[in-house]
């Protein structure tokens, strides 16, 4: 199964709808104002992001076309941008979007093990969404927190210094809707050296 952000095609599904919500419509205006007049297509990435957030983490055809319309761009130009960046998903994802970093530092520190844990707890294989729609598991390239490897991004938050135990606990807590702590899971402050006990 493919990464939902690396799909090149979109499907026309009549059930998919998209209109800017009222708050987002105001945000759209503010975003466009940041760019010089006549250059509003520069706002395509922020608007796609906004649309994706509004639409439960993915972009359907209507959302893409809405962004194109808002910026007076042609549909294909917006689709080009949306397919270029893997951060834009063109397929529905679960409530928790788990992105496991697999680039060398994280990999050396055991990202493969984390992937197995994720598969085990969520019950979905790579690139898939679990049946209960709570999880989508994907592997990504470097997320830039190598100092605290291995790490995982879940939705907008980083979870660092993971090992099999604390990652498993983390996912179970997520599954049970319990509170979880962000950042380093071993109490490390930013990227300071690990405390010796």
């Amino acid at each position: 199964m493919k990464h939902p952000g690396l799909i090149n095609s979109i499907k026309d599904n009549e059930k998919d709808l998209f209109e800017w919500s009222e708050t987002n419509f105001l945000k759209v205006k503010k975003i466009i104002e940041k760019y010089p007049s006549g250059r509003k297509q520069s706002a395509v990435i922020p608007l796609l992001d906004l649309a994706q957030r509004q639409n439960k983490g993915w972009l359907n055809k209507k959302a893409l076309e809405k962004v194109a319309e808002t910026l007076s761009m042609s549909f294909i130009r917006v689709l080009e941008v949306a397919t270029f960046y893997s951060m834009f998903n063109l397929k529905p994802i679960g409530k928790n979007y788990i992105q496991i970093c697999r680039t060398t530092p994280c990999w050396l520190r055991g990202s493969d093990k984390l992937l197995n844990i994720a598969k085990e707890v969520t019950g979905c294989s790579l690139g898939e969404t679990s049946k209960d729609k709570r999880f989508t598991v994907v592997e990504v390239e470097c997320l830039g927190a190598c100092c605290n490897a291995p790490m995982v991004q879940i939705n907008d938050d980083y979870f660092e210094d993971l090992n099999e135990d604390n990652f498993k606990r983390l996912l179970i807590n997520l599954k049970d809707d319990k509170e979880i702590s962000k950042g380093s899971q071993i109490g490390r402050l930013s990227s300071n050296p690990k405390r010796k006990n």
């Binding site: 690396l6 095609s9 130009r77 397919t83 270029f84």
Partner: peptide, 9 residues
Amino acid sequence: VDDIGLLGR
């Protein structure tokens, strides 16, 4: 006509 494009990378 803005019809053809390069998708993905």
